[in-house]
Design a protein around this nucleic acid. Structure first.
Lengths: 212, 212
DNA sequence: CCCATGATTGACTGACGAGTCAGTCGACGC
DNA sequence: GCGTCGACTGACTCGTCAGTCAATCATGGG
């Protein structure tokens, strides 16, 4: 369970994610976070430098985990390119169903928003894109991905498509409550996005359902 | 050129788009807009109800134009599904090159951001998605688009992919300064995204370069 | 039992910036 | 010339938080 200090910290971050998702970062007051977490106003400043730092921590700590998994997928030698990309899409769709508020905060308050333009967050985002680009570029070398498209652009297309689905879900335009919803969504996303990127060779031997 | 009043209004909106793109909506003060437009602070309030109303006008007026073109594309009886979707992608990529600041503001400050969750903007966005969905659904009826994927989800995938490319450009990760850049980008986007959605039949007779 | 250390509290302050408004200026009709 | 009307000005007001800090409480060690 970690030290009681670490628990308090988590408790505050959890509350912050909730209220950020509900009202947006700018409209939530620090007092809202404190109220939701059941702690005094001032305590927030015992654990965090500023309101911005709270949002930053939400992002940094979760994005690091995401990046780690992303790199594991990239380096999995037993997976083909299509499977790797499908795994990423599935990872994100699962995350969406399990922790929608967190995904919403990351999408709405960080990837988007003026804050975006700020320094180290861009770098963190780019790193994820870079990993996807590397998977795609490797796939091109293996003849599994269309060779004459820019892997950077494809990486953006891939991420963007998945992100849009997340947004659609958050807007309640795309249902994804149940396992079945999620499975169907994964199938549509992987089939549509991947079959546009993979060559015929790249589509062989994929698990049924991934493409086709 | 319109009445001098209308010109003043445009002048303020133009300045607003510029500073919103540079600093983000929340970080720009009304005085920044006034300074950039070369008018007095108070004049902003002669033409607009509030700072929010300025952003709202930026969106409303430009989105209406976009929607109009979108519907024309949908209703063009001389175009096949693939061509229609390609036309939309090309429209957006051109807009990106011609008015990057405007696109940035629409993406960052409206489609994203907490503001999003607010009332009539969602509806406006959904309307665009709906038009794309209608194009796709019609394509499915014609046998030009994969029949067993949800047209809504595909519409989101399509838009999201294009939007991500715009974001990549704004981040300077994807170059799109010259005509050649734009042409290459259009080709990659249409080829990748469309070939994932279209059936073999739907890919026949497309202009070379669109898919393939 | 007492003190020290650090978590915890919440009333308070100070800055910032949206929106107001009393007044100026220039054009135009009479 | 003179008055009116509306564009235009920018100093000021006023609410809203982010962030501070002095005081309190819980603990564990001596």
């Amino acid at each position: 369970m970690g030290s009681p200090e670490a628990e308090r910290r988590k408790q505050i971050l959890k509350a912050a994610v909730e209220v950020f998702a509900e009202r947006g970062f700018h409209r939530t007051r620090v007092s809202d976070i404190a109220k939701r977490a059941g702690v005094a106003y001032g305590l927030i400043y015992h654990y965090f430098e500023s309101k911005d730092a709270v949002l930053s921590s939400v992002f940094d700590e979760n994005w690091a985990v995401f990046l780690k998994v992303l790199k594991e997928i990239r380096d999995a030698s037993d997976k083909r390119t299509g499977e790797k990309l499908a795994a990423i899409a599935e990872l994100l769709i699962d995350a969406l169903r399990v922790t929608p508020a967190l995904i919403q905060v990351i999408i709405q308050e960080i990837s988007r928003s003026d804050r975006f333009i700020e320094a180290p967050k861009i770098e963190a985002f780019q790193e994820a894109f870079r990993v996807v680009k590397e998977i795609i570029a490797e796939g091109q070398r293996q003849g599994e991905v269309e060779a004459d498209s820019d892997p950077w652009v494809m990486a953006y297309l891939f991420f963007g498509a998945v992100e849009a689905v997340c947004t659609g879900f958050l807007l309640e335009a795309i249902p994804c409550r149940t396992e079945e919803d999620a499975a169907r969504l994964k199938r549509t996303v992987t089939r549509t996005v991947l079959s546009g990127m993979l060559t015929a060779a790249g589509q062989e031997k994929l698990k049924p359902g991934h493409v086709g």
